Simulated assay, not measured.
Amino acid sequence: MPVIDQLAQPDPTRRRPRRTAAGRPPWMDRPSPTMQSLKVVAIAAIVVVMLYPFLYVIMFSFADGRSVGSGQLWPTSFSTSAYESIFAGGVVTRSLLVTAGITVVGTLLSLVFTSMLAYGLTRTRQVPFSKAAMVMVLCTMFFGAGIIPNYLLVKQLGLLDSYWALILPGLISAFNMIVMRNFFMELPQELFESARIDGASEFRIFASIVLPLSKAVLAVIALFYAVGYWNSFFNALLYINDTTKWPIQLVLNQYVVQSNAMTDLQAPDRPAPPAQTVQMAIVVVATLPILVVYPFAQRFFTKGVLTGAIKG
């Protein structure tokens, strides 16, 4: 028998996937009631394990002194004195405004510079030394200068005790830039060629074609940057000595993790609530804004993650 005919014949020793009576693979069939019940129980247990700590923090942030002093696992009497005290003190309110400003400005600037760099590195023929620049960007993912050289650089640039010290050192993330560059490379090149024939410049192509087609990945990268800026406290710990410029995460670290005295957080004309409720209230205030924003960006996040996985 010729070799081609031998290859065309089915291999009798090859194991075929098991199929059900309906002719479908087992994983496509509807699970049995017992299996469905087990899945519901497992998912419910995971939800309880994940949500209980967060609900515990919220409940104890509203607990009054009697519930905290009695050592109850779940408070039975509630009060808003912790929130009234920290917001009347002014420190938490000011730090929230600082963090919000850093997050908004930093995210916008990071998106602008990351998208411009990513698009420039896709134009290997138009941009000279683009491959060398790509290698330099990749090197930053594996090699870092260290804390002391970074501090000396920020100091020499005159950025100590400046909000720019919290934005400029992390303005461009190499990982985010690579994700955006790969997305740009998947866009139809015919659109760019037709735009060049019509006389459009590279900046016009970038602003009028690339960015409108990249809303999904821009939303994903914006979410990454926003979460990073909101949760960042180490740069503030290194570069910010003025306590009036502390972001909320540094306040959270100093007064909850380090357990520093919280007298300056609270209003002087109010009775001091229990320290545990104040700590829990700061945790809620520092966490809640990003949790509120995430559901609105989730649909863009899902679309941006899936885009590029399917080849058309």
Rank of each mutant, 00 (worst) to 15 (best):
I102T: 08
A281C: 12
D264V: 14
A275Q: 15
V104G: 01
F62L: 11
P149H: 08
A145S: 12
L96I: 10
N176K: 00
Q189E: 13
F233W: 15
V217C: 10
A195Q: 03
E190C: 04
Y255H: 12
N235H: 09
A145T: 13
L238E: 03
V292R: 03
M28C: 08
K215Q: 14
I209Y: 09
Y239K: 00
S37R: 09
S130Y: 00
L96Q: 02
N260E: 11
L96C: 09
A222R: 04
R24N: 13
I43D: 07
P149R: 11
L51Y: 10
I147A: 12
F60P: 02
L191S: 13
S130Q: 01
L73N: 13
F192H: 07
L51H: 06
G120E: 05
A267R: 04
L138K: 02
M50S: 07
Q298V: 12
Q9E: 15
F192A: 02
D269R: 06
E84K: 14
A21P: 09
R299E: 14
P188Y: 07
P2I: 09
D29L: 11
P33L: 11
E202G: 10
V49N: 01
Q258N: 15
G23D: 04
E202M: 01
K245S: 15
I282M: 00
Y56A: 05
G199H: 07
S194C: 11
D269M: 14
V104P: 01
L250T: 08
T34Y: 04
V105S: 10
F184I: 06
E190R: 13
M262A: 08
T263Y: 14
V278I: 15
L160Q: 08
T243E: 15
V257A: 10
R123C: 03
M28F: 12
L117W: 00
A145D: 10
R24G: 03
F113G: 02
F300R: 04
A219E: 08
F206I: 11
Q279Y: 02
G90F: 13
M1S: 14
G89A: 04
A200G: 07
Q156W: 14
W230D: 04
V47K: 00
G71F: 05
R196Y: 13
R19G: 06
Q298N: 04
Y151M: 10
L211M: 05
V104N: 05
